[in-house]
Design a protein around this nucleic acid. Structure first.
Lengths: 141, 141
DNA sequence: TCGCTTTTGACAATCATTATCAATAGCCGT
DNA sequence: ACGGCTATTGATAATGATTGTCAAAAGCGA
């Protein structure tokens, strides 16, 4: 049976109050900062439960950490993430959803889950990056 | 300066001869199996170099490991991967390519890279899984 | 309220990956 | 072809995130 503990509530709430993605460790830090003496392992477990229950979305940062985000809507959507500043834009992808389902079905696959995320440089970072590249275009020794 | 070592060649070749994705560790094992006394750290480095040079693609499995695949063709395609037996089916996704590009552009993003992979259970594993689930469908206590 | 069961939490274990650093081997200029 | 400088290698330790362990504490039903 699933019991109702303040710890789980705390994690859920902390996640709700977070915009963008947080790592389990980050969320743990946040919770500690707000005074909760919650344990790290518990945060991991709560996060995993939340994700399993569909109340949270999880993805992996390019660095390999698992990031979580509150799933405010039932709508399944994906993200466009700036690899430099972390800006996250929610994108709808009905076309992709359908495509993924079809592709899986056509190949006899079931329980299809898809990883669809677009990483890039947002407008601001594109400019910054271009500017940073200017000063030292000479790799000569 | 970039030197040319047999180790790097070995990694590149091993990757070329591998269909689907391999983890760095897996590739290391494969290399050892073929007799190369190459070191694990070196495999990681070579793989990272290859990826940085655009000669290899990398993605992360749902379990958090980094998987690599040879970028043998200019054709950009994606994969449908069986999460149970590892069967990999190459899939074309022109529609997705276009979609990803558009979405990125619409949000001012540049250098868009997308991670589009579908994980699921292949037909065979679906059957096996269903069979395994049969014996105990009653969760009652 | 009582008792059983789940959950917690501190810590150890695990796993992939990266850093370290001395020894080796490539490459360049002579 | 040779010497020397320096990138690369590789064994191992370090790191860092995540998961397992297990006794103690708390929640929920009776």
């Amino acid at each position: 049976m699933k019991r109702n503990t303040w710890q789980r509530e705390a994690v859920r709430e902390a996640l709700d109050h977070t915009e963008g993605f947080v790592s389990a460790q980050g969320l743990h830090s946040t919770l500690h900062a707000t005074g909760s003496p919650i344990g790290l392992a518990t945060v991991y477990r709560a996060l995993a439960d939340l994700a399993a229950a569909g109340d949270a979305d999880s993805l992996q940062s390019p660095e390999g950490e698992s990031l979580y985000r509150a799933c405010s809507t039932n709508d399944h959507h994906h993200h466009l993430i700036c690899r430099n500043c972390g800006l996250t834009v929610e994108i709808e992808a009905d076309a992709v959803e359908t495509w993924a389902k079809n592709v899986a079905a056509q190949n006899g696959f079931t329980q299809a889950a898809h990883v669809v995320d677009v990483f890039g440089l947002c407008a601001a970072c594109t400019l910054a990056s271009a500017a940073a590249a200017e000063p030292a275009p000479t790799p000569a020794s």
